[in-house]
């Protein structure tokens, strides 16, 4: 790795996120390849890379939603399942059915479910927390609206409020700025900074290169592998970006693809591009 993580700041507690030699392959497509990553507490990490670089896959793998082919992931020094309550998640907006019969408040309340455990219903206190989270994203007046009646930006704010309601220490956000108006984007980034000030750690998948250096203090340049990772100023170099976006490693992706195919299919063709 070009700039390997050099963090001695948090030697006492385990790092919010540590990934070692992680490889993830969908049935026929390898997506992540030998990923090493250590995220220090209190940082905002932007995950940047071209389409199909495996950004969302990384988030999903951390959440245990995808099987891991090799390597391991630790959240606060534990496997994901043991650290569930310390993780907040903001999925991509297209991933849910917006016609679903719930209103904005219901969605935010879902963020409390993890703490409730089985057989318990959300209490009044939970509802108050949910309302205050809605207030933080300036959506109180929309609390009783069915979610399909919200604009894209408002929907994203509801998702953010839900993540806030999870009261987690590590937040994973998948493209929170997609399809969002400028005011919402500013509001979201303000909330992210606030969370950071409270010592929370944020990992944000982002596709906009122009705003990335402004938003994040660390950047993970991803393209199937870690192209570069570290402080924004160190990572955001022309050479690194060209490495990530230039497709100069077509051999790597080709070999990985044909290898995965052979494994799953018993395909005997050689290196089909």
């Amino acid at each position: 790795m070009q700039s390997s993580s050099t963090t001695q700041t948090n030697s006492k507690s385990a790092a919010p996120l540590e990934v070692h030699d992680l490889t993830v392959a969908y049935t026929k497509r390898p997506v992540l390849y030998g990923i090493d990553l250590k995220v220090p507490k209190g940082s905002i990490v932007g995950v940047v890379g071209p389409n199909g670089a495996g950004k969302s896959t990384l988030i999903k793998a951390i959440m245990g939603l995808l099987p891991v082919s090799s390597g391991w992931i630790k959240v606060f020094g534990k496997p994901f399942k043991k650290a569930v309550t310390r993780i907040g998640y903001v999925p991509q907006r297209e991933s849910v059915d917006w016609d679903f019969p719930v209103n904005a408040l219901d969605v935010v309340l879902m963020g409390r479910y993890g703490r409730l455990g089985p057989f318990k219903r959300p209490s009044k206190a939970d509802k108050e927390i949910a309302m205050s989270c809605l207030e933080k994203v300036k959506m109180t007046s929309y609390a009783t609206r069915q979610i399909s009646n919200l604009s894209g930006g408002q929907q994203q704010r509801v998702f953010l409020a839900r993540a806030l309601a999870q009261e987690s220490d590590l937040y994973l956000m998948d493209e929170p700025f997609v399809g969002v108006d400028a005011t919402t984007e500013a509001a979201i980034i303000e909330i992210l900074r606030e969370l950071q000030a409270q010592g929370k750690t944020l990992i944000v998948v982002h596709h906009d290169l122009t705003t990335a250096p402004e938003y994040f203090d660390r950047i993970l340049l991803l393209n199937m592998r870690v192209v570069a990772y570290g402080k924004t100023a160190d990572v955001f170099t022309f050479e690194n970006l060209q490495n990530a976006y230039g497709g100069r490693l077509s051999i790597l992706s080709e070999v990985a693809l044909s290898r995965a195919r052979k494994k799953f299919d018993g395909d005997t063709r050689d290196n089909v591009g």
């Binding site: 999903k60 959440m63 245990g64 939603l65 399942k81 569930v84 309550t85 993780i87 907040g88 998640y89 999925p91 991933s95 849910v96 059915d97 679903f100 719930v102 219901d106 969605v107 879902m110 963020g111 479910y113 993890g114 839900r162 999870q166 994973l172």
Partner: peptide, 14 residues
């Protein structure tokens, strides 16, 4: 409710 609406979130909630 939560598994129907957003399986990803459900998983993140344990």
């Amino acid at each position: 409710l939560v598994t129907s609406f957003d399986p990803g979130l459900a998983a993140s909630l344990g």
